[in-house]
Design a protein around this nucleic acid. Sequence first.
RNA 1: GCCAGAGUAGCUCAGAGGUAGAGCACUUCCUUGGUAAGGAAGGGGUCGUGGGUUCAAUUCCCACCUCCGGCUCCA
Length: 646
Amino acid sequence: MIKITFPDGSVREYKEGINSLEIAEQISPRLAKEVYSATVNNETWDLTRPISTDATLKLNKWDDAEGKHAFWHSSAHLMAEALESLYPGMKFGIGPAIENGFYYDVDPGDGRVITEADLQPIEDKMKELASKNLTFTRKDVSKNEALTFFSKKGDEYKTELISELTDGTITLYTQGNFTDLCKGPHLPSTEPMKAIKLLSVAGAYWRGDEKHKMLTRIYGITFPKQKLLDEYLVFLEEAKKRDHRRIGKELELFTFSPNVGMGLPLWMPKGSDLRQNLINFLTGLLRKRGYKFVTTPHIGNVNLYKTSGHFEKYGADSFQPISTPQEGEQFMLKPMNCPHHCEIYNATPHSYKEMPIRMAEFGTVYRYEQSGELHGLTRVRSFTQDDAHIFCRQDQLSNEFKSIIDLILYVFRIMNFNDFSAQISLRDPNNKEKYIGSDENWERAEHDIIEAAAEKNLATTVVLGEAAFYGPKLDFMVKDAIGRKWQLGTIQVDYNLPDRFDLNYNGSDNQKHRPVMLHRTIFGSLERFIAVLIENTSGKFPLWLAPEKAVILPISEKFNDYARKVLEILNNSDICTLIDDRDEKIGKKIRDNELKRIPYLLIIGEKEIEKGTIAVRKQGEGDKGSMKIEEFVSFINSEIKKELAF
RNA sequence: GCCAGAGUAGCUCAGAGGUAGAGCACUUCCUUGGUAAGGAAGGGGUCGUGGGUUCAAUUCCCACCUCCGGCUCCA
């Protein structure tokens, strides 16, 4: 007998060699139907894999990440089987489960192309196969056996993967007529895959390397119930409505014109007001925290970026330098603000007593992004960073770093970005030539970041190879409407640029010392931040940010004169207000202005004129009753204060 | 940059080798109204751009531009 310990701490005895599925069946037949994988001694296993020693056991259902993972991973194999039967000779790359569904990278071979029009037949084939209730079986084989199997099949991608595996045994999984190299775990059978949807096709380089061949990636998702699939498809539809590109156009916030150039956003009046509201908000916060604002030009001599290392690293992939007509001097569009800020630092001598120096700028930078990369406002070629550089002494670094974390969390809280993630981005230890500076400086900087994040009890993930070329980063990411993560705030520790720009301060010992530099943004760029903000709010901005706070709706044209008087009072009170004096019925005006997401609709008719009031209607909530105009002014001001009070 | 798809009115989209359509928006008129669409009439399109095939191309073919989904990249 073996002892199985369950997550609640209870222990039961079973005969040796029992599997997780049998255990689930003994607990309840219904549980056995709903369970997809097992976590045995902290390893995820197939349900049908026998357990031969005492173990801890967690049964993973749909709501467990491990359960979904097995479900979708098995779905990828099912899709592969369908593909193999419809496209004989197709070669297979990798086919993992992902956050929402799964994909498989395939090489259709000899000029065959798979397009979205081909997805339906593949999906139908998957449904047909799934309903056959095919069982997944696991088999351990030697490396040689595996190589023989896949080279006979002509699956060169699989043999490439296998030849790099060092394990003595390799596992293969088979369902129906399809066998794949795979670590598992898988579902016992295809039976639970009731609802299947293939979503898109895309190109993907083999092994993520652009020098390799481009394979065809097919994305799909499956569910144990049709209802869940339907809900997911509704979610995708709803998410499309929150797309910042769509709302930006609808609300006339920004636009793009091919005549200006791709990736170069044009901010319309309302979008500009929104930006300005964000800038004013952050400026206030930064001034309170001792930041000083600077302003620097949009171009800089190419030598400046040679000094910083940006030219060597990105010069070839940047907008190329422009030159002066007479002297041929070369200037680059500013890709970063830091070199300019270093020059401002160096313009005056510094004493240890004035540190830290916190230098801020809403600096517009220009970067050549590959055409295929551009994406609405989240990836553009011209954007304004809420940039700052903090020059400090080593003994001040930790506190400075932590107070920036606090500031970012504070701003995210006000913006209601509760679902963010924090990532520590370190150097790739196997690729050190990608970075500048000494090992010693890197180790110091990485240590500083890890320690500061830990002291703030910040939940972080560590990713190697994501550092900037001059230093490691702590990045804050927020998701867009469909769950794509975008980096907004970032804090970077930099020992390298101070060396390159020969930055100094005079210490208490009257000797020259090297300051440490922190690069940091909170919004990241105004463009990307606004994009994420739009998708998180559906364009229903909080009152303090809304470019237009209220719109006056006269019941009929008879009341337009009074309405215009109210308009003047409100605008003079700094409440940006519009008037809708069209010849339309009130219901129509309400509908149109609700759709414009204006926070307050102010209705004016006979009654209001008599009493000198306005009828207030809050966007999305309806009638709030009447109040005097002055009352409304102080009401709006107090609402804004509440939104910003933390 | 690479793979795949798309581009028709201001917006959302239908259409077809033979004179270009709908809804919303816009203009004018009627209507003067009380909390999410009142009625009527009207204007508006080199069908992304340039080539080619054809008696005829917005439709078929080629190239380019832009956009969308990914990949790679992201100071």
